[in-house]
Design a protein around this nucleic acid. Structure first.
Ligand code: SF4
Ligand code: SF4
Lengths: 163, 163
DNA sequence: ATATCCTGGACATTACCTATCCAGAATTTC
DNA sequence: GAAATTCTGGATAGGTAATGTCCAGGATAT
């Protein structure tokens, strides 16, 4: 019952990419994105690759290469990001213990008929619906109202540490 | 992002206890509750102990001892059971990476102010609300409409395997 | 040609879930 | 009171998934 830490990393990284791109029209490399938060570069790289596979980011090799957003923050839901890192697995993963109980019908898929399973699935669904209803742009806007200096600060850091 | 398997075990076990108690007015031992689904007895015992600590079950030592429900199924929410096994940890556990970023204020608790954290917390809250809105009695009733023979079948098994 | 940077796989480390075992205490039965 | 049953809590082992590192290969810009 715990999400990968990578979810937090890439959510922040996507927001940072949004601000960088507004400014320089360029992406940023794994090394620099990781340095910004002192994250392990190789591991963050893995998470970013997952976002590329999910179509949230694009990547370019070579000097001045790196990652950039594949679409606008308005068009990326939080659920998109979570799913890219975490996969589609539900929190409640039924092992169908009823199949080992007395009087069980081996042909029955209890996941679809069992009341327990149904309840837990509804909860997972509510969780996803909540995440799907919020886009990265929504988060960005709320960051702006709380700390309006964030974009400038982020851009400045990436400017100053440019190779 | 996965729940302990124990959640599934004890949810079913609580329902079984409900049917057993309607009949015999007695509890059932770990050994028999585990045997019903071929679960590892010692491990199921650990989960049941957690339910006792959470006030969902009561336990009695000695011969003819075992576990029984501490209150009616109507008064036990699914969330109660999940929390007893899983703890109060949220799926999204923020590591406050902003504290390692440039221009961070070490005195700030970013978990309360950060837009990312707020969004993820809302989703966790939706999940909990969904589980809190359903009681074990609701599940029991839905089991009854789907397989009305379940109570009798369960009771019969526990009768027949009595020492 | 060279330096940069992503990609994918292999691998090591760590954390946590799963599972077992046992000594001790409580309780019933005889 | 003695014996059998059953829960309790801790110690401990094993397995699986998350975390983190490393490297060879390919792509791209200068
Ligand atoms: S009854 Fe539902 S929760 Fe229980 S084992 Fe079957 S599918 Fe899983
Ligand atoms: S900004 Fe929010 S999500 Fe990011 S580290 Fe801080 S609390 Fe966690």
């Amino acid at each position: 019952m715990k999400l990968n830490a990578g979810v937090e990393w890439v959510l922040h990284t996507c927001l940072n990419l949004g601000w960088i791109e507004e400014d320089t029209r360029e992406g940023a490399s794994t090394a620099r994105l990781a340095a910004f938060y002192h994250l392990p570069p190789a591991y963050l790289g893995k998470q970013l690759q997952a976002l590329v596979r999910a179509g949230i980011l694009t990547s370019t090799s070579g000097p001045r290469g790196g990652f950039r957003l594949a679409r606008r923050l308005e068009d990326i839901s939080v659920l998109d990001v979570v799913t890219a890192i975490e996969g589609r697995t539900n929190a409640f993963e039924c092992t169908q213990i009823l199949h080992d109980g007395p009087g069980a019908n081996p042909a029955t898929d209890y996941r679809t008929v069992c009341a327990v399973s149904q309840t837990m699935s509804r909860a997972d669904l509510a969780w996803r619906r909540e995440l799907a209803s919020e886009t990265l742009a929504d988060i960005r806007d709320r960051v702006l109202t709380f700390s309006p200096g964030a974009p400038r600060q982020t851009r400045a850091w990436f400017e100053n540490t440019r190779a």
